[in-house]
Simulated assay, not measured.
Amino acid sequence: MPTFTVFPNIKPSSGGKGNPYISDFISAINNEEGCKVVNESHKNPLLSILKPSNWGDIFIFNWFESIPDFKYGYIQSVLAILLLFVLKIRHKKIIWVLHNKKPHQGNKRQIKKIITYLIAKESDYIITHASEGVRLINDRFSFTAGKTFYIDHPTKNRLSMITGMSLDKSYDVLIWGNIIGYKGVYQYLKYVKEENVNDIRICVVGNCTTPQIAADIKSVASKNTTLILKGASFEELAEYIASTEFVLMPYLQDSILSSGILMDSLSFGAKVIGPDTGSFRDYAMNKDLNVYVFNEYKDISNIIENNRGINISAEKYSEFLEKNNWKNFIGKALNLINTSVTSCR
């Protein structure tokens, strides 16, 4: 029976929920007959998998190139590099899931370049959730050609949660999720205030990752912006999305490639506006979905004006969500490595 090690399997802090992508990934593997994830969640996900008892036949690394941003990042980076070499000596299969063009934090660039090169070189397979990711990594490292694959970011079908909800729209755009620098929330709200964009009703729902970010957001919020600076449950999000014309992701384009928030928004049947890059661009070309892309913030107003009141096709959305659910994602991933996991399928 093939076994798996999934990184980073971070143990949630008290009262926290951990990364839903990782927990869903692990559950989907464990739900496959004959497959098992052997490493338990841990407060330090890298140190925990240095133990051979936590080694599966196949290692799945997510955000490996961001290890330098961990606490004691340089030390952990050295340990990560040594681990890669040991795993190759022990003939372990390595899968790297590429989520971003580059780490969102721009510091420690040299060590990040080294780690990115090594994980790209030593991986047996690379999975990315945007077609741009395949071109990006193959252009950067020619040796990755033939082992890099685009598989849609897995999602869930939550359309039933908005069934029967009021169609009255209290807001034009909803911005939701943890508020971090690369997501461009401050920059967009600043643009709206400075350019006197008064015809867009904006609702921002999410935790600010630092008090300074919260202060910055409040300083640029205009009178047509509602700030709810706290997390929301999926039940609450269903209500926000049902009462909003569009979900807006004003992300900065330099690092973003794929987005869990994009997929979660689609899972509720949202019309989505995002940057013209990565999976946003992929889904803007999908006629079954209502995804729109911008290059400059001024484009957002035109998108809203031209697509206000358009209804989605619940049937087409449902087909897309079922096609790209977690079970099917794991099936596609396992088929890439079927020589190693034939007893899983």
Rank of each mutant, 00 (worst) to 15 (best):
213 I>W: 07
161 M>A: 06
135 R>Q: 13
165 M>Q: 03
162 I>M: 04
121 K>Y: 09
117 Y>D: 07
113 K>Q: 13
187 Q>Y: 12
119 I>F: 05
248 L>K: 03
209 T>S: 10
216 D>G: 09
121 K>D: 02
229 L>D: 00
119 I>A: 04
133 G>R: 11
180 I>Q: 12
247 V>R: 05
215 A>E: 14
224 N>T: 07
249 M>W: 10
142 S>E: 12
183 K>V: 10
205 V>E: 00
242 A>I: 11
200 I>R: 01
189 L>G: 09
128 T>V: 12
253 Q>C: 07
231 G>I: 02
120 A>F: 08
140 R>L: 11
157 N>L: 06
192 V>P: 00
224 N>V: 09
208 C>P: 02
215 A>K: 13
212 Q>A: 15
182 Y>R: 07
251 Y>E: 09
241 I>H: 04
231 G>H: 04
242 A>D: 01
197 V>P: 01
117 Y>N: 12
184 G>E: 08
132 E>K: 13
171 Y>C: 07
236 E>R: 04
117 Y>Q: 11
158 R>Y: 15
157 N>Y: 04
148 T>Q: 03
149 F>W: 09
116 T>Q: 05
169 K>G: 03
114 I>A: 08
121 K>W: 06
174 L>E: 04
176 W>K: 03
247 V>H: 04
253 Q>W: 02
163 T>D: 07
222 S>W: 09
252 L>N: 14
172 D>Y: 06
196 N>D: 12
150 Y>N: 10
111 I>Y: 11
150 Y>G: 08
244 T>R: 00
128 T>K: 05
160 S>D: 02
186 Y>T: 11
212 Q>D: 10
190 K>W: 11
228 I>A: 02
234 F>Y: 10
186 Y>H: 14
193 K>T: 14
144 T>C: 03
194 E>H: 09
244 T>G: 00
125 Y>K: 15
240 Y>I: 12
145 A>Y: 11
168 D>S: 13
175 I>A: 05
252 L>F: 12
239 E>S: 14
253 Q>S: 14
165 M>Y: 01
204 V>E: 06
153 H>M: 03
139 D>N: 14
151 I>A: 04
168 D>E: 15
147 K>P: 08
214 A>D: 10
146 G>T: 10
175 I>T: 05
166 S>F: 02
124 D>E: 14
227 L>W: 03
183 K>H: 04
252 L>V: 15
189 L>P: 05
246 F>R: 04
237 L>F: 04
221 A>W: 13
137 I>G: 05
182 Y>C: 04
227 L>S: 01
246 F>V: 08
245 E>A: 09
150 Y>Q: 11
130 A>K: 11
223 K>G: 10
128 T>Y: 06
195 E>V: 08
149 F>Y: 14
112 K>G: 08
249 M>K: 14
253 Q>F: 01
200 I>C: 00
215 A>P: 00
252 L>G: 10
144 T>Q: 00
142 S>P: 00
208 C>L: 04
223 K>T: 15
150 Y>A: 12
233 S>G: 05
131 S>R: 15
241 I>L: 03
181 G>M: 07
195 E>F: 11
176 W>Q: 03
187 Q>E: 15
249 M>Q: 13
149 F>I: 10
168 D>L: 13
191 Y>V: 14
158 R>C: 11
143 F>I: 12
157 N>V: 02
190 K>R: 15
196 N>S: 15
163 T>N: 10
205 V>F: 01
195 E>I: 10
